[in-house]
Measured scan of single mutants.
Amino acid sequence: TEEYTYTDKEKADRAAKEWANRGYTVTVTQDGPTYRVRVG
């Protein structure tokens, strides 16, 4: 499991979509002003 942190919702959504397109399980959680994209 890897985790990426973004401050921009659009970038987080785009990253999540790209990982999902590659067949990974993706979870996006909002943590205050940041968005965490957990992959795998």
Rank of each mutant, 00 (worst) to 15 (best):
T1S: 11
T1F: 15
T1A: 11
T1Q: 11
T1N: 09
T1H: 13
T1P: 11
T1K: 07
T1R: 09
T1G: 12
E2D: 11
E2L: 15
E2Q: 15
E2F: 15
E2V: 15
E2Y: 15
E3Q: 06
E3W: 11
E3P: 04
E3L: 09
E3R: 05
E3S: 07
E3D: 08
E3A: 05
Y4H: 05
Y4V: 04
Y4N: 03
Y4W: 09
T5W: 13
T5Q: 08
Y6E: 01
Y6L: 02
Y6T: 05
Y6S: 02
Y6F: 14
Y6P: 00
T7G: 08
T7N: 11
T7D: 13
T7H: 11
T7A: 10
T7W: 13
D8R: 05
D8M: 05
D8W: 04
D8K: 05
D8Y: 05
D8G: 04
D8E: 08
K9S: 07
K9T: 03
K9A: 08
K9E: 05
K9N: 04
K9G: 06
K9H: 07
K9R: 12
E10L: 09
E10P: 05
E10A: 12
E10H: 10
E10M: 09
E10Y: 10
K11W: 08
K11L: 14
K11P: 05
K11V: 12
K11F: 08
K11Q: 14
A12I: 01
A12R: 02
A12G: 02
A12D: 00
A12N: 00
A12M: 04
A12F: 03
D13S: 09
D13E: 14
D13K: 08
D13V: 13
D13P: 00
D13G: 06
R14W: 11
R14P: 01
R14N: 11
R14I: 11
R14Y: 10
R14E: 13
R14V: 10
R14T: 11
A15G: 04
A15F: 08
A15I: 08
A15Y: 06
A15N: 04
A15R: 04
A15L: 05
A16Y: 05
A16T: 04
A16G: 04
A16N: 02
A16W: 04
A16F: 05
K17I: 11
K17F: 11
K17H: 09
K17Q: 13
K17G: 07
K17P: 00
K17D: 08
E18H: 12
E18S: 08
E18P: 00
E18V: 08
E18N: 07
E18F: 15
W19R: 01
W19T: 01
W19H: 03
W19Q: 01
A20Y: 09
A20E: 13
N21A: 14
N21Q: 13
N21P: 01
N21F: 09
N21C: 14
N21G: 11
N21V: 09
N21T: 10
N21I: 11
R22V: 04
R22Q: 11
R22K: 13
R22M: 13
R22W: 07
R22E: 06
G23H: 03
G23W: 02
G23T: 01
G23V: 01
G23N: 03
G23I: 01
Y24K: 04
Y24A: 04
Y24V: 03
Y24S: 02
Y24I: 03
Y24G: 01
Y24Q: 03
Y24F: 12
T25P: 06
T25I: 12
T25L: 11
T25M: 11
T25H: 12
T25G: 05
T25W: 12
V26R: 00
V26W: 02
V26F: 02
V26I: 05
V26N: 00
V26H: 00
V26S: 03
T27M: 08
T27K: 07
T27L: 08
T27F: 08
T27S: 09
T27A: 07
T27R: 07
V28P: 00
V28L: 07
V28S: 03
V28E: 02
V28K: 03
V28C: 07
T29H: 09
T29L: 12
T29N: 06
T29R: 07
T29A: 06
T29Q: 07
T29I: 14
Q30K: 13
Q30H: 08
Q30F: 07
Q30N: 07
Q30W: 07
D31K: 06
D31P: 01
D31I: 12
D31V: 13
G32T: 02
G32W: 03
G32P: 07
G32D: 02
G32N: 02
P33I: 09
P33F: 12
P33K: 11
P33W: 09
P33Y: 11
P33H: 11
P33E: 14
T34V: 15
T34W: 14
T34E: 07
T34Q: 08
T34L: 15
Y35R: 01
Y35T: 04
Y35H: 03
Y35K: 00
R36I: 15
R36F: 10
R36V: 15
V37Y: 01
V37S: 00
V37H: 01
V37G: 00
V37Q: 00
R38Q: 11
R38N: 09
R38A: 08
R38S: 12
R38P: 00
R38D: 04
R38Y: 11
V39K: 03
V39R: 04
V39W: 04
V39A: 03
V39T: 03
G40Y: 15
G40Q: 15
G40T: 15
G40D: 13
G40K: 13
G40S: 15
